Amino acid sequence: MPRTKTNALADDLDEGDAATSSGKPNYSVPAVEKALDIIEYLAAEGVPMTRAQLARALNRQPPELFRMLTCLESRGYLWRDSGSNAYALTLKLFELSRTHSPYEGLLRVAEPHMRALAAQLRESLHLSMLHGDQVMVIAQEESPKPFRLSVEVGTLHSVAGTTSGRVLLAHLPDDEVAALLKRDATHRQLSAAGRQTLRERLARIRTQGYEWSEGEWFESGIDLGVPIGSPQSRVKAALVMATLRRKGEGPTLADVLPALQACAQAIGAAAGIIKGDTT
């Protein structure tokens, strides 16, 4: 009897349902895993690769990848160069991620609020979110001052070693905090006393609703961070003002905290992740 697509899928599911050595069921689907191996490897390498190159890299036989590569190409996930027959990722995954990304709406509504506040305070602002085990800067508005702090959009930073990261950690459930800190390089380098100090610091941030730090990266630097979102919201972000204290002069907490909190509230309300006035 010929092996139909339905039979093939059933075979894949039967293989995946086999128990592992630990006695727990393994629900892997070999065909799906093969496709994901190809996509993830091409994404990691960042250069086109032939079927033979992919087979060697993934420890598979070239004929084994033929149908999968053909399928991914026909669905628009891969592009094949007619000269070299090398495969590369298209922009389809990026387009799909943008279609349903909850962050697009946040960025869209945050931009005018951040621009207005940067002009009002004459200080730089950046917006950050968790990205895997780190914090990613997803938006920035620079101060109009000739000398200002700037953080590049798209850069990744430690959750324990940054104002943004600590603000986000302070507003996460304890089990998520523990898991993130376990994988954080900055946290691993802390002594037992340093880790206790960090726990106390996170508790203080959670209670007071902001984080003020001076001289963390260099002597004259000041960071003030507040959260965007609520314990119930799926999207959480940190809004941070970054500035320099020059010749002993700089903003005080009373000068800037109310405006920063109002901006965070307005962004969260406009994005629909917290209740509030969106006007």
Score class of each variant (00 low, 15 high):
I267P: 07
E33W: 08
L78H: 05
A179N: 04
R148C: 01
P25E: 09
G225W: 03
I267C: 04
A264C: 09
V32K: 14
T20Y: 00
A57C: 10
L202Y: 09
P258Y: 10
M49S: 05
W217K: 14
G248R: 06
R195H: 03
V109F: 03
A254K: 14
L130D: 00
R122P: 12
L169N: 06
M241I: 05
T90F: 05
F147W: 12
E45L: 01
T50I: 04
K247T: 00
H113R: 14
E141L: 01
V137W: 00
E152V: 09
G215S: 08
Q196T: 10
L257Q: 07
L65T: 01
D277K: 09
W217P: 00
E40W: 05
L65E: 02
N7P: 00
D37Y: 02
H171V: 07
L121V: 12
N7V: 09
L106R: 01
L180A: 04
L172E: 10
T252I: 04
G215K: 10
R67M: 12
V109H: 02
R108P: 04
E219M: 10
A35V: 03
A179Y: 02
L198K: 04
G23N: 08
R166K: 15
R56F: 08
N7S: 13
L239V: 04
E111M: 14
A185E: 11
L169F: 03
A266M: 08
R245N: 05
D11V: 13
E214C: 06
R166D: 01
R3M: 14
T99F: 15
R246K: 03
A88S: 11
V153Y: 03
R204C: 13
K275W: 08
Q61H: 12
P30F: 06
I38A: 00
V226A: 08
R115S: 15
G225I: 02
R108Q: 15
Q189P: 00
L130R: 14
L260G: 02
K145F: 03
E40H: 07
R204S: 15
V235M: 01
G221Q: 13
L96N: 06
L65G: 03
E216P: 07
W79R: 12
T279V: 02
M129W: 00
K34T: 13
S213Y: 00
D37S: 11
R75A: 11
R115F: 09
L257M: 12
N59E: 14
P62Y: 09
H171D: 14
A266V: 02
T6N: 09
G229M: 03
I39A: 03
P63T: 13
S230I: 10
L106V: 11
S97M: 13
P227N: 10
H113L: 10
S82C: 09
